[in-house]
Simulated assay, not measured.
Amino acid sequence: MDRMPSRLRRHLAALRALLVLTVITGVIYPLVATGVAQALLNDRADGSLIEKDGEIVGSALIGQSFTDAGGGPIRKYFQSRPSAAGDGYDPTATAASNLGPEDVIDTPDRTSLLTQVCARSKAVGELEGVSGARPYCTPDGVGAVLKVFPDRAVSVNQACPAAPFVPEYQGLKVECAEPGRDYAAGRTVPVRGGAGRPAVPADAVTASGSGLDPHISIAYAELQAPRVARERGLARDRVEAMIEEHTTGRALGFMGEPVVSVLALNLALDRG
């Protein structure tokens, strides 16, 4: 070894360090971490899986949709918030939509965030029997946005022959949008309208940052309670009591807002 070239000695030392660190960080540490997790965290270490009749039906950490084959809501179940993860609640495609508050104009190949929110609010309102109106939305569920030119204004999210949500804007006649026409030169003007505080909560019309949030707000759960009670033939106060039973408080007592686990609540309803 003493006669071994210094360059070779350095390579052998590096190789030994690589092997030792590989064993420590790639074998020993994962085994210890897994063992401690299994011993102390029990079911949470395996993904917080939830079973029904001996079958795994989901995870307490990942939301899921309660819809029929056509994508419509199953009326006897509480509905989750929207999801931008893949086709919805896909753990392999967890993500937000990355659309922001300035995304207000629809294009032929993509619906704007504003119109998505407006359409969801309208649909939830119809499902729950309340007004789906909200600021910056038209009555037909698209973004209330004008492109204003010197001689006219165009409701760019309402394709002809739709009737514009307002007949005129600051003395200019408002027209519907002609499909395929370029209105980029106009000034973009979102119109707030006369809608007050929306009856449909924000989490009913927006996806979470991960797209996998398994919870909804208490407000959204309470909005759905009359429908679920009616569909299941239950007293409304019984359903509301079950909402309270499946509500989680603020983290550490002060972080975030109380939330309701949709899957746990729906399974409790199925158990009666």
Rank of each mutant, 00 (worst) to 15 (best):
M4E: 09
M4G: 00
P5A: 13
P5M: 08
P5N: 14
R9G: 02
L12A: 09
L15K: 02
R16P: 00
A17N: 12
L19C: 11
T22W: 11
T22H: 12
I24W: 11
T25H: 12
V27E: 06
V27H: 01
V27P: 04
Y29L: 15
V32K: 08
A33F: 12
G35V: 03
G35C: 07
G35T: 09
V36N: 07
Q38G: 02
Q38T: 03
Q38A: 10
R44T: 09
D46Q: 14
L49E: 07
I56D: 02
V57A: 01
L61S: 11
S65L: 09
S65D: 15
T67M: 12
G71V: 00
P73T: 08
P73Y: 08
Y77N: 11
Q79R: 08
R81Y: 08
A85W: 05
D90Y: 04
P91Y: 03
A93M: 13
T94Y: 09
A95S: 15
A96N: 15
A96I: 00
S97I: 01
L99V: 01
P101F: 10
I105L: 12
D106N: 15
D109L: 13
S112L: 07
S112H: 08
T115V: 03
T115G: 03
C118Q: 08
R120Q: 14
K122T: 12
A123H: 02
E126S: 13
E128D: 15
G129P: 12
G132A: 12
A133D: 15
P135W: 09
T138V: 04
T138F: 03
D140N: 14
G143C: 04
K147M: 13
V148Y: 07
V148E: 11
F149P: 02
P150H: 04
D151F: 01
S155E: 15
V156C: 06
N157H: 07
N157D: 12
C160W: 04
A163W: 00
Y169R: 12
Q170M: 11
E178Q: 15
D182A: 06
A184T: 13
V189P: 02
V189T: 02
V189H: 02
P190E: 07
V191Y: 04
G193A: 06
G194V: 07
G194I: 05
A195C: 06
A199W: 01
A199C: 00
V200N: 02
P201V: 06
S217F: 06
I218Y: 07
Y220T: 10
Y220V: 00
Y220A: 10
A221K: 03
L223M: 13
Q224Y: 10
Q224N: 10
A225S: 13
P226K: 14
R227K: 13
R227W: 10
V228N: 10
A229L: 09
G233P: 11
L234P: 00
A235K: 15
R236Q: 15
V239I: 13
E240L: 15
M242K: 14
I243P: 05
E244A: 15
T247M: 10
G249F: 03
R250T: 10
A251L: 14
L252T: 05
G253M: 08
G256W: 10
E257L: 11
P258K: 10
V259L: 13
L263E: 01
L265I: 04
N266L: 01
A268S: 13
R271H: 11
